[in-house]
Design a protein around this nucleic acid. Structure first.
Length: 493
RNA sequence: GGGUCGUUAGCUCAGCCGGUAGAGCAGUUGGCUUUUAACCAAUUGGUCGAGCGUUCGAAUCGCUCACGACCCA
């Protein structure tokens, strides 16, 4: 990158500072944060503050604004909690410091200041500075102090600049942290135990998706970045950790979009001796808590729409949802292969060679109903054909005891009673391998060790995954997954 | 993968019926001891995303490419 004039000038200032002994010092210990001061003294009126015992404070932060008025100046410092204004006068600093040092500093420099609190004529809480020093010199200029940084590409690629100047961005990631924390607290409150399982798998499993491949040099073997933690978490249930969860990254080798990043965060949790109805109840409870925490309301605004989290979440079977959004379609039509196939084709859905009735129904659902499910809605009775890891329904083996949760037309969670019949699971893996051999590169591998684990006996278990990124998008009203990832994946520039 | 739009000073943006680039902020210099997007005056700063083409002449028109945004599959 070219050294432009602004950077050259700042480098020159830094060189002078070095000659004077500046060495990016680390001795300044702040004692107050901007937000604490605003909270504690922001409401006091000017006179009360002036008459009371002086409140001595010590703050540090990046200088974001400065207004020099001859022999006195105001500047705005920003720390990790917010902003506080400081008031600096020539005559209260050492001889020559105001003109020789302070006035030569730049916006973006990190400054430490000490003094006493007062309120300006316009009522802004400020620090009357008695000591001030430059802690860290910045040699690159900040974006426009008023407009901030608008360029999406730079916001993603140089997130640190975005975070310095765009408060909305800081708030999004602050809320993301709180959401993750709340999910973790919720599960711990429900007596789950947090675990970490491998991210590098010999056999990628637990989802139907293309994996990233890598290689272990010392062992000279291929490895795959995990596409889901599911099979390892269930091995833990076999091992006797009956309630476990993991919040971490999975990786899928697919295209990029406003809803997809190659690495994304899920929470997966598994509980023995429960079923998917219990998980739906947990999920509803958790999401209502999150709405209350994040929005402070049961009405969640998203991209100009509003989703109602206040009422009980709707629960529909997949067939009911199809009928609801396809006028005139009857239950009978959805019960046999030929009529379902005809319906799919009338909807311009491509029906591939290997599709069974279950896959066709799922395609019809995804094409016609999914994107219309605005308020939180659980869809149940997923066909076994599209649910290779889920337990079959006792009354109807065509379907599994499974649900997905949709909000704003998007899938947010997926849960089901786990298949703990090792022989059934082995058969389903074989079907997946057949599909893979037939050209479906997203189909699953046969995981022999997982079958062995199930053969030792896994108690009846229900498990669920919730997409954290999508959850954060929802509660921060973000249009793109990139807005909720600190460092989203970008093409090489 | 397809379509639409965008890429001009460090930042935010004009300029796009072709005639050799402008504003505000930031920077520099001067003024100003309660300002707050401080203000006033002066001033520096650009391979106009990259390449090729059309033209006497291209930021502007055409093509290709890169990157991004949005929509679609």
């Amino acid at each position: 990158m070219d050294e432009n004039k602004i950077i050259a000038e700042r480098r020159a200032k830094l060189a002078t500072l070095r000659e004077q002994g500046h060495s990016y010092p680390n001795h300044f210990r702040r004692e107050n944060s901007a937000a604490d001061l605003q909270a504690q003294y922001g409401e006091m009126d000017k006179e009360a503050l002036a008459e009371a015992e002086p409140v001595r404070v010590k703050v540090a932060g990046r200088m974001m604004l400065r207004r020099i008025m001859g022999k006195a100046s105001f500047a705005t410092l920003q720390d990790h909690t917010g902003r506080i204004q400081i008031y600096v006068t020539r005559d209260e600093l050492p001889e020559g410091f105001y003109n020789g040092q302070f006035k030569k500093w730049d916006l973006g420099d990190i400054v430490g200041a000490e003094g006493y609190l007062f309120k300006t004529n316009t009522g802004e809480l400020s620090i009357h500075v008695e000591n001030i020093e430059l802690i860290t010199k910045s040699i690159r200029p900040l974006p426009d102090k008023f407009h901030g940084l608008q360029d999406q590409e730079v916001r993603y690629r140089q997130r640190y600049i975005d975070l310095i100047v765009n408060q909305e961005s800081r708030e999004t990631f602050l809320l993301r942290s709180k959401i993750v924390q709340h999910v973790r607290d919720f599960l711990i409150r429900k007596n789950f135990m947090e675990v970490e399982t491998p991210m590098m798998h010999v056999i990628p499993g637990g989802a139907t998706a293309k994996p990233f491949a890598t290689h272990h040099n010392a062992l000279d073997m291929p490895l795959f970045l995990r596409i889901a933690p599911e099979l390892y978490l269930k091995r833990l249930v076999v091992g006797g950790f009956e309630r476990v969860f993991e919040i971490n990254r999975s990786f899928r080798n697919e295209g990029l979009s406003t809803r997809h990043n190659p690495e994304f965060t899920m929470v997966e949790f598994y509980a023995a001796y429960t079923d998917y109805h219990q998980l739906m109840d947990y999920t509803e409870e958790l999401l209502k808590e999150l709405a209350e925490m994040a929005i402070g309301s049961t009405t969640v605004p998203y991209q100009g729409q509003e989703f109602d989290f206040g009422k009980p979440f709707a629960r529909l079977t997949m067939k009911q949802a199809i009928m609801q959004y396809n006028e005139g379609v009857t239950a009978e039509q959805l019960e046999n292969f030929e009529s379902a196939k005809a319906l799919a084709e009338s909807l311009n859905i491509k029906v591939d060679e290997g599709y069974g009735l279950g896959k066709i129904l799922t395609e019809i659902f995804e094409e016609t109903a999914e994107h219309r499910l605005m308020d939180p809605t659980f869809i149940t009775e997923y066909p076994a054909e599209v649910s290779p890891l889920a337990r079959r329904n006792d009354a109807d083996p065509f379907i599994t005891d499974r649900f997905e949760l949709f909000i704003g037309g998007r899938e947010l969670a997926n849960g089901f009673n786990e298949l703990n019949d090792a022989e059934d699971q082995a058969e389903r893996f074989k079907a997946q391998v057949a599909a893979k051999d037939a050209g479906d590169d997203e189909a699953m591998h046969y995981d022999e060790d997982y079958i062995t684990a199930l053969e030792h006996g896994m108690p009846p278990t229900a498990g669920e995954g919730i997409g954290i990124d999508r959850l954060v998008m929802l509660f921060t009203d973000s249009a793109s997954i990139r807005d909720v990832l600190l460092f989203p994946h970008m093409r090489q520039s």
